[in-house]
Design a protein around this nucleic acid. Structure first.
Lengths: 126, 126
DNA sequence: ATACATGCAAACGGTTTGCAGAATA
DNA sequence: TATTCTGCAAACCGTTTGCATGTAT
């Protein structure tokens, strides 16, 4: 992976904005610094960075993927009202892995958990 | 919801074929009985049936949605090699709900768990 | 010099939608 | 008859890709 200014800005943008932006949101943000960047470059770099483990790509059903600069183990909850994605700690889910390893002949390589709910802000707006 | 022969065949197809078919697979299967059915009708009915709770729609990252006629609580594991989706029992995850309810101000409305791994069949083919 | 990256625009894949006509209630 | 449904085709949306050019090593 060769250095590029565009990639550095993209990476920096995701890491320093813990809002779990979509590619398109990253694109808008990056354009303030790099006005001629193309959406294709944003996609290519977000994918590259997540393949290299420098970013996480979070799949959202029926909506755009989100990107997350936090690399430690945590999960997410999607607010049904406002669409914002929040971090959430789920304690230790590795017990599930253990259980499945015992009960099935699968080799588990990963899992994803996505919760849905109503965030405190949306609850406040009754 | 008015009766339609097409919808009945679609529903029957999903319920009696526990292979977690995609819309396109359902389309192929249904066409053997209903050669003039359109893909649009298949999509419309799969969505309608899952909205009514008569079917479950399972979101798969970077791939087509799958449909499941099993309505009881269970989860799924996607084989990375062959792409087949299998049922898996994860015991009681409601403890997670409890934990989150205590630790956060979110109202949890649902969660989805998708495991990835290598299925026994693919492991056998070394 | 040679890889790799970029901007652009077109293509892609899965899914949804508008419409005119057909089937159900 | 009023409403819902269908087949068809076009549109849609998020994402990827081919290409000619530019940049890093």
């Amino acid at each position: 992976m060769k250095y590029s200014r565009q990639r550095e800005i993209i990476h920096h943008t995701v890491v320093h904005n813990p809002i779990h932006p979509t590619a398109d949101t990253v694109y808008s943000m990056v354009r303030t610094q790099e006005p001629n960047i193309s959406l294709g470059t944003v996609y290519r770099n977000l994918n590259l960075l997540s393949e290299q483990g420098l970013l996480r790509k979070i799949n959202i059903p029926n909506a755009s993927d989100r990107f997350d600069g936090r690399l430690d183990e945590h999960h997410h909850i999607l607010c049904e009202k406002c669409g914002q994605l929040f971090d959430i700690e789920l304690g230790d889910l590795s017990a599930l892995d253990e259980q499945i390893k015992k009960e099935s002949d699968f080799t588990i390589t990963g899992y994803q958990v996505l919760l849905t709910g109503i965030c405190p802000g949306c609850k406040a707006k009754h």
